[in-house]
């Protein structure tokens, strides 16, 4: 097996809510290899969001180690974490989190604007390529309020991949979308994964987990299940759905 892209050992995370100390993670070990498509499931309050925040370098663990692309990141400063997020991570959120009153293209450009040595021209070209990859090249001028939920999420996916991250972290990316649109989005993710991009996806919907190559289930701050999965093809399902619609 190749050196893991993400390597987590003995990860714990405690929160203090007033006087109560709350243990969100109680010792998590996880390796994700390059090119994997991992779905992280579990009920709400299981700690999967906390795990996602730590994996996304938005938060630091209380104890334990975290190596991302060979670099130890568990004790970095806020600025250094920002640099890691900018260089190595792509985010897709449940609520899309696009900037309002800003065009699709400019939304996709955003991560590149915070990177030194990328010219305006280059940022524009790369953002356009990313929009092409999600099939929205013709909507580059549109603002988020002119796009459907599925289209907004595609823009967000384009934004997450524009900086060539080592891993894309998706937090309930289909949570705000209907079944049909969810399938579309999963097709996009599977397409990206087929191109070798590592994806870690958090969801509590079993329907969505089917499309990942590996299932990790978290409960009460611990991993209770970690097993490979034969992924279903989102493209086939979309086609099937379309065929049924034609009947």
């Amino acid at each position: 097996m190749a050196a893991p892209m993400l390597a987590v050992r003995g990860l714990t995370k405690n929160y203090r809510l007033g006087d109560i100390e709350f243990q969100a993670l109680r010792g998590v070990d996880l390796d994700v290899a390059p090119g994997e498509f991992v779905a992280v499931g579990g009920p709400s309050g299981s700690g999967k969001s906390t795990l996602m925040n730590v994996l996304g370098c938005l938060d630091v663990p209380t104890t334990g180690s975290y190596h991302l692309d060979g670099e130890s990141v568990e004790r970095l400063t806020a600025d250094h974490l920002a640099l890691v997020r900018n260089r190595k991570l792509g985010f897709v959120f449940q609520s899309f989190n696009l900037l309002k009153r800003t065009s699709a293209l400019e939304n996709v450009e955003l991560p590149l604007l915070y990177r030194k040595g990328v010219s305006n021209r280059e940022a524009r070209d790369r953002a356009m390529d990313a929009l092409k990859a999600v099939g929205l090249a013709d909507r580059w001028r549109s603002h988020p309020n002119q796009l459907s939920g599925g289209q907004q999420q595609r823009v967000a996916i384009a934004r997450s991949m524009v900086n060539d991250p080592v891993v894309i972290l998706a937090d309930e990316p289909t949570g705000n979308l209907d079944t049909r649109t969810s399938l579309d989005i999963m097709e996009v993710f599977q397409g990206l994964n087929a191109r070798g991009i590592t994806i870690v996806l958090v969801t509590h919907e079993p329907d969505i987990m089917r499309f990942a190559g590996r299932h990790v289930v978290v409960r009460d701050g611990r991993i209770v299940k970690d097993a490979p999965n034969a992924p279903a093809s989102a493209r086939a399902q979309v086609a099937a759905l379309a065929a049924r619609g034609e009947d």
């Binding site: 600025d79 920002a82 640099l83 997020r85 985010f91 989190n97 955003l110 915070y114």
Partner: peptide, 16 residues
């Protein structure tokens, strides 16, 4: 606030 959160998540540093 949310815009700031998005920018921070995408790699903006406090100084940016």
């Amino acid at each position: 606030t949310r815009e700031i959160g998005i920018r921070l998540a995408l790699g903006a540093r406090g100084n940016d």
